[in-house]
Structures are given as C-alpha cells and as structure tokens.
Computed example of a mutant assay.
Amino acid sequence: MENSKLKVKDLVNIGVFVVIYFLILGISSMTFVFLGMTMVKSTLALLCFALAPFVTGIILGTPVILLMAKLQKPWGFFTFGILSPILLWLSGHNSFIPAIGGILLAAIAEFVLYLGKYKSFKAMLIAYACYNIWTMLPLADILFVRAKRVKMIQKMGLALVNNVFTTPNVLLILMFALVGGLLGALLGKKMLKKYFTKAGIL
C-alpha cells in the first residue's frame, strides 16, 4: 500500500509536467484561436477553432501518457489534471465553466485509470481522450456565457459569431477534442513503446 501513495518525487514530476502542459496548451490552442478570429468566412473560422483542441490533444498526448506511465498511482492523474484548469481560471479566465469542467473531466479520467489498475493502455487512451475535452471548454464559454460572447462579437462581428458558435458547432469542436486526444494517446504509445514495455503496461 505504501508504494501506491504519492510521494514528494511524484508531486515534483506532476509539477514539472503541469508547467510543460500549460505552456504548450497556451501556445498551441491560442495560435488557432487567434487565427480563427481573423477569418472572414464562418467555415474557416470554425475549422481553426476546432483545430485548437484537436492539435493540442495530439501534441500533448506524449507527455501526458508518459506521466500516466510514470505515476501508476491513485490520485496522481487527478492531481495533475485539476491544476491546468485552475491555473487558467486564476490567470484571468473569469468564467468558471472550464475550471469546473476540467476538474470533472480529470475525475472521470482518474476513475477510468483506476478501472484499468493504472497499467492498461486502453484505460490511458480513454482517460486522456476524455480529459482533452476540457481544452475546448473556453470556446464553449462563448455559447453559454453572455460576457464572453459579447467580447467575441466585438472582435469578429455579430454575424460571424452567430454562425460559428452554435450548439451543433460546439459539439463538433468537442468531437475534434476527443479525436485529438485519442490520436495523441496513440502517438504517445508509439513514441514510448520501449518505456511501456519496461513499465509493464498492457
């Protein structure tokens, strides 16, 4: 039981990975979001917004899967998973939706990993794909939070925002986030194949 508890070394690893994750998340997602805001056609704008969580999920798949493989302990991923949504909220994202949603998705991912006894790649695949959904929640804000929608209208115009940020389109962006997470996890497994063998991950 003692080996299943998080130790100082584990917490340090989690902290390092959170920094890496949050920096890459910010650079990758905001690149596509800013690009989307420059588009004049709704189809291209929607594509850019959908690519934000999709590409981010692929890029971050390897480091997150590596962290899962290194920890293999209860509450390890949950501890990691809640920090980025909280950091986003503390950094000035006034809406609570991404923070609460991120914490809930981290809990779901932790539960999936628990079912896989923290050694199943299938569990890691599902857990990461579910968790990556939180990366599109700041965009969902524009649909549900009036203040965010007003700010986006000021930047993109009323017609474009009304065409892009609809319920079906937000669900489409969610699906892009889910698929990006799946592809990112698969890429992570391929890149970490030798490490997975040594760690006894099935």
Rank of each mutant, 00 (worst) to 15 (best):
I24W: 10
A52E: 08
S28A: 14
A50S: 14
F96P: 04
V16M: 10
V12Q: 02
S91N: 13
I82W: 01
F34H: 13
L66C: 06
A50H: 01
V12C: 04
S29L: 12
F80W: 02
T31G: 09
I14K: 04
C48T: 10
I65R: 01
Y21W: 14
H93N: 12
Q72M: 13
F77K: 00
L88T: 08
I24L: 15
K9M: 12
G26A: 07
L44H: 14
P85Q: 03
G26H: 09
T31C: 13
S84V: 08
V18H: 03
F78D: 03
A50Q: 00
M37Q: 15
V19Q: 03
G26E: 05
M37H: 10
I27C: 10
H93F: 13
M39P: 05
I59M: 09
T38C: 08
A52V: 01
M68F: 09
I58T: 05
G61Q: 02
F17K: 08
I86N: 04
T38N: 12
V19D: 02
L90A: 15
V33Q: 12
G15M: 04
S29W: 10
V55W: 03
S28I: 13
N13D: 11
P63I: 11
D10H: 08
F54T: 01
P63M: 05
M68C: 12
M68G: 09
A69W: 05
T43E: 15
M68V: 03
L11T: 01
S84N: 10
D10L: 09
A52W: 00
F34M: 15
G92C: 02
L11V: 01
G57A: 07
